[in-house]
Design a protein around this nucleic acid. Structure first.
Lengths: 302, 302
DNA sequence: CCATACCGATGTTAAAAAGTCATCACTAGG
DNA sequence: CCTAGTGATGACTTTTTAACATCGGTATGG
């Protein structure tokens, strides 16, 4: 694809931080890449990059330019996908930045459903914390972001947000597994495994215990939800997760989940959104619509 | 400027309607231009143009593309103007599509005021009827449109609209010149010169007379406001114009204008606007701000 | 019904652009 | 003070783009 080469080249330099590394990534020599940059700077009459001893950095003019270039490349992709769409076959690529909870069940299932209809569409699923997910939208590395709890960026345009009650996860032979819902006061009587403080679930639990005289002392702490889930079974311990991260069909496995009483722990919210003002490629827009429908169907829309 | 050269080439073909004519406009041979198009079509795997015996026409895919290209070229201009702006000097070009009324006094004055501050900014002022002005916004040939009376296009984003009471224009020795405001019933007793039906002023007058038993029979009809103004003096006849088209300082000339009583003729509106969703280049945005301030200062904002 | 004029496509060749290679000058870090 | 990494640049090659000439096709006007 020859259209917008200069934009792609300069984008690569920004990402790499140096001309030589970018050249390697682009499979051309640094001389060629350097010449393109010099030519572009001459055309504009402005320095795009500051030259540093260890590489290059965007000038303020360059900041404006790279935003333009990324928007243009993304627009080109979108139009290409629209064109492909009107020839009948839906092609394209959907890039998603999301938090851990979506990875084990929800997204694999949803991607599979979509790809069954449109096998020509490829997917990229990238684990990102809230901040990185929002950043990925801003620099066009992701079409959609799905994150748990508060959204900060003003450029984030929420497509749907659904309620997620915190669930206690435990082995099926745990004493609390017999109950249909559990109270937080019951949980603290057993050892618990918790995600680290930077995660929304932990934040909700901390908020809940702060207001009461309960205290949750984690026997195990981890930043991997997957580890926590498996560990809960292995050690017969309680951990906490949100429904979207738990298998939907109550597969009669060794792991069960029980909602924590709403009076004890406030529900969190999952946000799905895109970059404000951006028109998504066809495939991404349709996939977003599918997710919206599924989420609205399974959970309480807020 | 080599960036976006394919976009410019294809835009030229769309505008010209044939590859050969576009090639001439671009000062290249038709062969070169043709090859560009074929290469671009091969890249996309879609025909951009339908080949007709007398030229080419956009395919549906081409329609999507040309919109992208025009947006990209306009965005590039905007970013260039932003970059120029942050180096200190404001440079750029402002293209305006407007109706006749703005041409004699208002815009020349406003452009002069702006260019006094920023001599590096150039202007294009193009006379367009409502529909053509809106079209000029849509295809990025104009940054701003200023039109009288109804705006139809949904893509038109109004920046300001001000009230324009219809004025009777006549020689200073006309009997009605002694009055500070005139009634329509007085005007019909004298010969009048009117703009043709497609203009807003005429439309307002027709609306006014339709509801009453008055009737305006033009002795002279013209589609040139300038002709009407001069003719009113030359033949000592009455014509009608809106204030923005009349000199603001009550220059003691041979021509005077008197507002028609608001009970007789409803006021019209002048709309200034841009393409919805577009971010204007710095110069255009600042000029629009100046116009907004001036209009709001002189007339009643609606 | 043909002559003409205009259209887009294409083979060949020339010019221009972009890429490669080798190398320089510079600077941070051990 | 040396090393490893950076951007810049001259000389050369390859690729791309444009020019020129020309073909085949189709409306249009006498």
């Amino acid at each position: 694809m020859r259209y917008l080469v200069s934009a792609r080249y300069i984008d690569a330099v920004v990402k790499a931080g140096s001309i030589r590394q970018a050249a390697e990534a682009l499979s051309i020599t640094s001389a060629a890449l350097n010449r393109r940059i010099l030519a572009m700077e001459a055309e504009l009459g402005v320095q795009i990059f500051e030259r540093l001893p260890r590489g290059v950095r965007l000038s303020s003019a360059g900041e404006l330019l790279i935003q333009l270039f990324r928007r243009q490349m993304s627009d080109m992709e979108r139009v290409k996908s629209q064109i492909a769409d009107l020839t009948g076959v839906r092609r394209g690529h959907v890039s998603i930045a999301c938090s851990q909870a979506l990875l084990p069940y929800f997204l694999p299932e949803q991607v599979a459903v979509y790809r069954k209809e449109h096998p020509q569409v490829t997917f990229g699923v990238h684990l990102r914390d809230r901040e990185a997910a929002e950043q990925a939208l801003a620099d066009y590395t992701a079409d959609l972001a799905i994150v748990f709890e508060p959204v900060r960026m003003s450029e984030f345009h929420t497509l749907i947000s659904v309620r997620q009650q915190v669930h206690a996860v435990m082995s099926s032979d745990h004493p609390l597994a017999k109950k249909s819902t559990v109270r937080l006061s019951e949980c603290v009587m057993y050892p618990v495994a918790l995600p680290t403080r930077r995660y929304g679930v932990r934040h909700l639990l901390d908020m809940a215990t702060q207001g009461s005289n309960l205290s949750l002392e984690p026997a195990v702490e981890s930043d991997s939800f997957e580890f926590l889930r498996y560990h809960a079974v292995a050690e017969n311990i309680i951990t906490f997760q949100i429904p979207v991260g738990l298998t939907t069909g109550n597969a009669a496995g060794t792991m069960v989940s029980r909602p924590v009483d709403r009076r004890d722990v406030p529900a969190g919210l999952i946000y799905m959104g895109q970059l404000k003002g951006r028109t998504l490629p066809v495939a991404a827009a349709r996939f977003a619509a599918q997710l919206t429908a599924t989420l609205a169907n399974r959970y309480e829309v807020m």
